[in-house]
Each structure stands twice: as C-alpha cells, then as structure tokens.
Amino acid sequence: MRKVLLGFTVAVLAMVMVLPANAQTRKERKILWNSQYNYEIEPVGVGQDGTKVFKVWGYGKDVGAAVMNAKEAAVAACIFKGLPGGAGSAPTPPICSQPNAEQIHADYFDKFFEVGGKYLQYIAVTNDADPSGEDRIKMKKGYKVAIYVQVMYDALRKQLEADGIARRLDSGF
C-alpha cells in the first residue's frame, strides 16, 4: 500500500512540475498570434528577378481580415525576419539587419503598416480568390488562412534604403 501511495505521489508531483512548462493559456496563444515575430511562411520556389514568392498565413475575424493580416505578415517577414529556405530557394536575409529595427523606427513602421498603408504597394497576390480547402481553417473565433504572395523584395529594399531605414550595401564608400 505504501509503495502504491509513494508512486501516486511521485506521479502527481511530476505532472504538477511539467504542466506549467507546456501549458499555453488562450491569452498567451493570442499574444503569439499577434506577435510580429510569429510569421508562418512556407517557401514555394524562386521568384522572378527582384521578387520572392511564398505561402504566408494570416489570422482574422473573417477571411478578408485574415488575408490582410497575411499580406502584412508577408512584408513584415521580408523586412524583419527574413525568409526560410526551401523548395529550391535559399534562405533570404531580412532587409533590416539592424537589431530591434522595428522599435528604433517605430513611427515609420506604424505609418508604413497602417490600414491601406504603403506596404501594400510591394505585394502581388498570386491568387485573388478567397483561400479555400486546406488554406482556410475555421477556428473558434475567426479564420486562419494561407495566401500565395509575390513580394517585390528589391523594390521594398530600395524604398527602405531611400527612407534611411535600411543600410545600403555601398553606404560609406
């Protein structure tokens, strides 16, 4: 009996110690979704000259809002995080290599990413229809959708260089 009790106590203690490490509250999950670092990107190939093509996921209350979120994430990923390699394409570095660029130039990026902001200029959606099938997931509150985008990477880089946000390769020479 003693052995059974001891075993039970050890099992309960182990669960108590392990659970908080793995458990994610809904609030934490939401923070993660909204985080500017949490871009879900899947490369689909090598883009034409000066462009990047990939599949990007977005979240929103409805499909339209989720698509807009995905477009924002696509441009933000090119600027702050870079793109992973895969499907024949090598990894792409972020345009802003400066650490904490999003905080240092917060005012600029607030305006850049505002609703209908300039970031939309650098996005070409490869499919205009609403995502369907496996690219459209209905969640408890809203949708998670994936879109295929082509980002005008070189044009975006040149704009940020001209605005003094990103450093030119030949600056100083």
């Binding site: 394409s89 290599s97 450093r167």
Partner: peptide, 23 residues
Amino acid sequence: EEAVLSHMDNFNAGLMRHFEDMF
C-alpha cells in the same frame, strides 16, 4: 538563373556584415 537569384541576397548580406565590421 534561379540559382543566382536564390543565393545572391544571402551573399550580399554576408558582404554587408563584412563592410559593417570594416567601418
């Protein structure tokens, strides 16, 4: 052409790090 397009951004990022270190 695909190989060049795919790799050059990464190569230039390496060059940029070298120049930043230089300055």
